[in-house]
């Protein structure tokens, strides 16, 4: 069978180097999150990272496996999980989420390189299903701005505005305004800890692409598809928000740049990566417009994670290949 499950082994790169590279790439958004949401953001991220590393270490210790808890991958999972929860979450939420992410979604499947689902997203799905009242009902405004990104509307995050108040004329008239888009781009809106600032995430991601630690095809495919589909939906009246609003709001940048590109849970071939990104972006928009949740990024990536073994078969013919 033509499936290679662990790309970091396939390429002759050091796992640690890549992983810490990703951690560095996440730093701008992390510092931004402290600026936007205060020290509690750092506190929750810290708890999440410590739990992730500790869980991995203890599991490997108890089951007498090689200790790889400090290779950086658990740190990434911890940071990404914390980035995906609201800052008003109780302290135990990132702890439980990280624990689940590492134990169930990663170690039970065999550890790094063998997990089917992105551990951070699996952890997020777990806390989302368990405590939706926290995950979807406890948004807070950034310290220096309005929760909705629009002055004077303090009831909901941008995506909730879209889902629950889409008929309100006060919302409709300003949802695509430069003020809104500027706040979304900088990150000065309500949302999960690390997802709000497209700008800072982008800075980190460019570093990853330049260092070739992540593949730009998936990100471009994902975010580009959200943009195009949102544009089509906007023109046909299915969503009142324009394409820029859709790519900048919610977790599209965090998901498209950092979670869909996770080496273990994304395809290895360029063609497979394009399909992975494009299909993920499409599913995200379908959930946003027709689903029950305001946001569809995490489920779209989890959904596409399942297709990775299949997508790994999508590749150009090599020289002299005989059709089986």
């Amino acid at each position: 069978m033509y499936i290679s499950s662990s790309p970091h082994i396939r390429k002759d790169w050091n796992v640690k180097k890549i992983m810490y590279g990703v951690v560095i790439a996440l730093m701008p958004a992390f510092i931004g999150s402290i600026y936007f949401f205060g020290w509690r953001a750092a506190y929750l991220t810290f708890l999440s990272v410590v739990t992730a590393v500790l869980t991995e270490y203890l599991f490997q210790k108890i089951t007498k496996r090689k200790i790889t808890a400090f290779d950086g991958s658990a740190i990434i999972t911890g940071i990404l999980l914390a980035f995906n929860i609201p800052v008003k979450s109780p302290w135990w939420l990132p702890v439980v989420g990280s624990f689940f992410a590492i134990l169930v979604a990663k170690q039970f499947f065999g550890g790094l390189g063998y997990n089917i689902f992105n551990p951070a997203l699996a952890g997020r799905a777990f806390v989302m299903a368990s405590w939706p009242q926290i995950m979807t009902g406890r948004w807070s405004a950034p310290l220096h701005g309005s929760i909705s990104g629009i002055d004077g509307i303090t009831s909901a995050t941008p995506l909730n505005l879209l889902k629950l108040h889409a008929t309100d004329p006060a919302v409709l008239s300003r949802i695509n305004s430069p003020e809104m888009l500027k706040n979304l781009f900088i990150g000065n809106v309500g949302g999960c800890i690390g997802e709000t600032s497209a700008l800072l995430l982008l800075i980190g991601a460019i570093f990853l692409f330049v260092m070739r630690y992540a593949d730009w095809r998936i990100s471009v495919g994902y975010i580009g598809t959200v943009f195009v589909v949102a544009w089509i939906f906007y023109l046909t009246g299915l969503t009142p928000a324009g394409p820029l609003f859709h790519i900048l709001s919610g977790g599209v940048f965090l998901g498209g740049l950092f979670m869909a590109t996770d080496m273990v849970t994304s395809p290895v071939t360029p063609a497979g990566r394009w399909i992975f990104g494009i299909a993920g972006g499409l599913i995200c928009m379908l959930i946003r417009v027709w689903g029950g949740y305001p946001e569809g990024v995490s489920y779209s990536i989890l959904f596409m994670n399942m297709f990775v073994p299949l997508l790994d078969r999508v590749r150009p013919k090599y020289l002299g290949e005989v059709k089986k």
Partner: peptide, 15 residues
């Protein structure tokens, strides 16, 4: 106040 709802949802059964 904060039970692990996941457990009574279908995926919790599988888990």
């Amino acid at each position: 106040n904060y039970p692990v709802l996941f457990m009574i949802l279908p995926p919790g059964g599988f888990l």
